[in-house]
């Protein structure tokens, strides 16, 4: 699996420099304004979308039939995408949390409610992971071209969910028990969903014919 993670990382740093620029700029940006909801969501969400993007690069290069001939199992190939998605989302969430704690404390000299901030970042990270969980099996089943329809539909779904929870995306400055509970609930939901999604993707991929 290490080889696959290295490959994806190399592709990401070559192709998605813009993403890293957005990440570096956006996460601290939220700390400077009152409304940090979007600034939190955007980079975290992008992190969870990256495995889907790397699938597109793999498909264009016809990587998968070749990868299966290397000493890598189909399980490694599928799980590496989930591991990457989880790792990047976690890293971005930690970076966003750190930026939103340090900037107000050091530059603005204002107090930030750590539990509220952590709860909302955790919530968005969980939603982003669920978004990845929904999309990856469809990408494996339909390919990235057709899978994009599901991607768009699930994106709309996430936006609608976010719209239904306005207090969440505006609550980082005031502790909301709802946010805390919701973030824990979403995180709890994301764990079995990720396991189920990975199992489903693996089932699809094991049956997939990867003609040379």
């Amino acid at each position: 699996m290490k080889a696959l993670l290295i490959k994806d990382w190399k592709i990401l740093i070559r192709c998605l420099k813009l993403y890293f620029f957005i990440l570096l700029c956006y996460a601290p940006l939220g700390a400077l304004g009152k409304d940090i909801g979007f600034a939190q969501i955007f980079p975290i969400f992008l992190g969870a979308v990256l495995p889907v993007s790397t699938l597109g690069y793999d498909e264009r290069a016809h990587w998968d039939p070749y990868a299966v001939t290397l000493p890598l199992s189909r399980k490694d190939i599928v799980l590496s995408k989930y591991v990457m998605g989880l790792a990047i989302t976690a890293a971005v969430a930690i970076y966003t949390l750190a930026a939103n704690l340090l900037i107000p404390a050091v530059i603005l000299r204002t107090a930030v409610s750590v539990p509220a901030l952590a709860a909302s970042i955790l919530l968005f990270a969980a939603i982003a992971i669920i978004f990845m969980d929904i999309n990856l099996p469809f990408m494996y089943l339909l390919g990235t071209e057709k899978g994009r329809l599901v991607y768009m539909a699930s994106l709309v779904l996430v936006i609608v969910i976010s719209g239904l929870l306005p207090e969440i995306s505006h609550s980082a400055l005031g502790l909301s028990l709802d946010t805390a509970r919701l973030s824990l609930a979403m995180t709890a939901a994301a764990i079995p969903l990720t396991a189920g999604s990975a199992a489903l993707s693996l089932c699809i991929y094991r049956k997939k014919e990867l003609a040379a």
């Binding site: 490959k7 190399k10 192709c15 690069y57 990587w63 039939p65 990868a67």
Partner: peptide
């Protein structure tokens, strides 16, 4: 296979690192 299956954004050094991790 009948085409190079590495992403076109990679370099020979990248391929070396990837394959080094794949093959014992």
């Amino acid at each position: 296979l009948d085409e190079c299956c590495f992403s076109e954004v990679l370099t020979l050094e990248d391929v070396d690192a990837i394959m080094n991790a794949a093959y014992r």
